[in-house]
Design a protein around this nucleic acid. Sequence first.
DNA 1: TCAATCAGGGTTGTATGATAACACGACAAG
DNA 2: CTTGTCGTGTTATCATACAACCCTGATTGA
Lengths: 261, 261
Amino acid sequence: MTLKLDKVNRGPHLSTLVASSISREIAQGRLKPGDQLPTEQALATTFGVSRNVVREAIARLRSEGRIWSQQGRGAFVADATNATVLTIDYETLQRADSFRNLFELRGMLEVQIAALAATRRSDADIVAMEQALDGMRTAPYGSVAWLKNDLGFHRAVAEATQNPYMGQFLVFVSERVRESILAAGNQQKSDDMARTTLGEHERILAAIKAGDAKGASAAMTRHLAGAASRVGLPGGNAAAKPASSARHSRLRKAVRGQAAG
Amino acid sequence: MTLKLDKVNRGPHLSTLVASSISREIAQGRLKPGDQLPTEQALATTFGVSRNVVREAIARLRSEGRIWSQQGRGAFVADATNATVLTIDYETLQRADSFRNLFELRGMLEVQIAALAATRRSDADIVAMEQALDGMRTAPYGSVAWLKNDLGFHRAVAEATQNPYMGQFLVFVSERVRESILAAGNQQKSDDMARTTLGEHERILAAIKAGDAKGASAAMTRHLAGAASRVGLPGGNAAAKPASSARHSRLRKAVRGQAAG
DNA sequence: TCAATCAGGGTTGTATGATAACACGACAAG
DNA sequence: CTTGTCGTGTTATCATACAACCCTGATTGA
C-alpha cells in the first residue's frame, strides 16, 4: 500500500528553525523595520545553537530581503517593501481560509490569462495544450501524472500569453493551492470527475484555438467553479487537520522523532 | 548629515556570489533537476572559499526551494515547481520587455482587485484609501512620500478585497514595476501629471465607495492607461525599442533608491 | 577651546578543524 | 538469499580564531 507520509519534513535543519523563529518575530511586530537584531553570538546562545547555524539563518533571511546586515555594525530589520522574494510560508498555508483565498487569487489570474491567451496564442502553444490534454486522458484521475499534465495545461495557457511572468505567477499560486488541497486531504475521486474535468479543459482549448477571448474566460470560469466544487469549496471548508502543533518543542534535538501519526 | 554614500555594493558577501553562481548553473540547465551537486568541500575548493560560505549559500538556495539536501547523501537540484518563493532577479528585470510584461501583469491584478474591492470594502478600508490620497495631495509629485502614498492607496484597495494574498502579490509586482521605472530612469514630472493622477485615483475611490464594481475596474483601467503613458509605455506596439542602455551603474542607483524609500 | 588622530572594544565576515549523524555499498556469516 | 556489520563518504553542527569594519571616547596637538 502507498503510505502517504506528510511532506512536512520541512527542514530538520536548525538554521531553518532559527530563521522561521526570527521571521515570526518580525511578522508579529516584535521586531519593527529599522530595529537591530541581537548579535549573532547572543542569538546563538539564546537559541542554544552555534553561531554558524545563526549565520545560515541570517543568510537566508537576508536573501529574502527581510533583514539587512553590515560588517562591524549588526543586522537590522528591513522595510517590508524591500522583500525581493514573494513567499508563502507553510504555517499560513495551513489555515482554513488561506485555501479559499489562494483559490480566489488563482481564479482571478486564470480567467484573465485565458482571455489573453486566446488573442495571442501561437501554434506551438496549441500543440503544448493538446499534449497536456492527451497526458490527462491516459492517466488515472488524481494520479501524479494526471496532476502534472493538469498543471502543464494551465501553464501552456499561461505561456500562450507570451508574458513569462504570467506563467511564473500562475504556477506559483497553483502549487500553493495544490499543497493546500493535499494538506486538507479530503478529495475523493471518480471516473465521472475525470470526464467532467476533461470536458472543461477541452472547452477552454477550443475557445483559445478559435481566438475567442470571451469564450475562453467563460470556459475557464466554468472550469474553476467545477474545480472548486470538486475539492469541496463552496460551503465545505473542511479543515479537519489538527493544526500540527507538535513542532515547537524547543529547538535542539527535538527534531528527532518527527514521524508523526 | 546623513549623506548617502556609494556604499551599497550589492552583496559583498561571498555566500551571495556562490549562491548566484550555483543558481545560474541551474537556470542555464547545466544542472538539471535531480542532479547531485558537488560536495560542500569540492564547492569550497573550486570557489576558493571556506566550506562555511558554501553552506550559507546552500542554506539560501534550500530556502528558495531550488535545491534540497539530506544529511549523509548530498545536495540535489529540486524540481522547478518546488520553489517555495517567487523571485524576480535583477538581470531579467533589466530586459527591455520585462517592464511591459510586469506592467501587464500588474494591470490584470489591479483591475480585478478594484472590482472585488468595490463589493467587499469596509469603512476602515475607505478611510485608509482617503488617508493615502491625502498623503499624495500634500507631497510633491514623484517624491518619495508621494510614491509611498501611491503604493499605499493601491495596497488599501487590495486589502479591501479581504484577501491578504491580493495585497501581497500586488505589492510585490508593483515594487518590481517601480524598480523597473527607476532603472529606466526616463520619467519626467509636471504639475499637470500630479493633478491628472490624483483625479484618476479619486474616481477609483468614488466607484469603490459606491460599491460599483464595474465602475471601479473601469476607473482602474483608465488609471493604468494613464500611468502607462506617463512612464512612456505606448498602448500596444512599443516592444521594438532595443533599449540595451541600462547599465550596471543605473541598476545600482535604482537599488540604492529603493533601499532608501 | 577645538579639531584631528588614534586606540580599544564590539560586531560581522571568513577560515579552519573537529565531531556527530546519516546514507550506502562491500563483505562476511548464517 | 538474507542479514548483520563495518568502513567510507557526506552533510549537520560545534568550536575557535582571525580579519575587516564600525563606533566611541580618550588623547594629542594647535
